[in-house]
Amino acid sequence: MGDDKFSGVDFNTERHFNRIVLKYGERIYRTVRGMVGTHEDADDIVQETFLKAYKNIDSYRGEADIGTWLTRIALNLTYSRSRRKKLFSDNPVEDYMEKISSDTVLPEVAAEEKERRMIVENALKTLPEKQRAVFVLRLYEEMKFSEIGALMGTTESASRANFHQAMTKLKKFVSDKKLK
C-alpha cells in the first residue's frame, strides 16, 4: 500500500494512463467488486473511476498515493450507485435470515463454494456501506486501519470500530445460521 506518490505523471499521455490503469485496475476492481454484487456493476464503476480520475487529475494534489486516491473515487462512486440502486440493504441481519433460507437450491457441482459465496454476498449486503467498505479494505486489500481511516476521511479508531461492528454482525450471522 502507498507505494508511490504519482507525482509528475501525466494522465493525458496514453502510455502513462495505460500504466496507471494496469497497475491499479485489479485493486480497484477487487475493492469495488467486494462492495457491489455483480461484475457488471463493478465494471461500470471501475471504468467510471478511471474516467473521473482522468478528467480530474488536476485536482490530485499528491497528498495520498494514487491508489488511495483512486480507491476513494471508487468508493464514492459505489456509495452514489448504491443509493440509486439500493445495493445495500437497510434491513438488519436478522431480517435477512428468512430470505436466505428460501433462496434457490444450488447445483451439486461446487455446491460448498457456491454456498459460501452466496452467504458472503448476502451477508455483506446487510452491512451498512461504511462497515462493508472497511471490511473489504481490511480483508481483501489488507490495508491498515490507519490507511483505511485516511482513505475514508475518518480516524483509525473509527475504522477499527466499523470493522468490529461488521465482524460482530457477521459472527452473529454465522452463529444463527450455523454455517460450516
Binding site: Y29, V120, L139, M167, F173, V174
Partner: peptide
C-alpha cells in the same frame, strides 16, 4: 466463531476477471 466467520468472509465471494 470469529475464526469461522473470518474463514468464510475473508476470501472474496467472486472470481477476479
Amino acid at each position: 466463531l470469529l475464526k469461522e466467520t473470518l474463514m468464510i468472509f475473508s476470501a472474496p465471494n467472486f472470481d477476479m476477471p
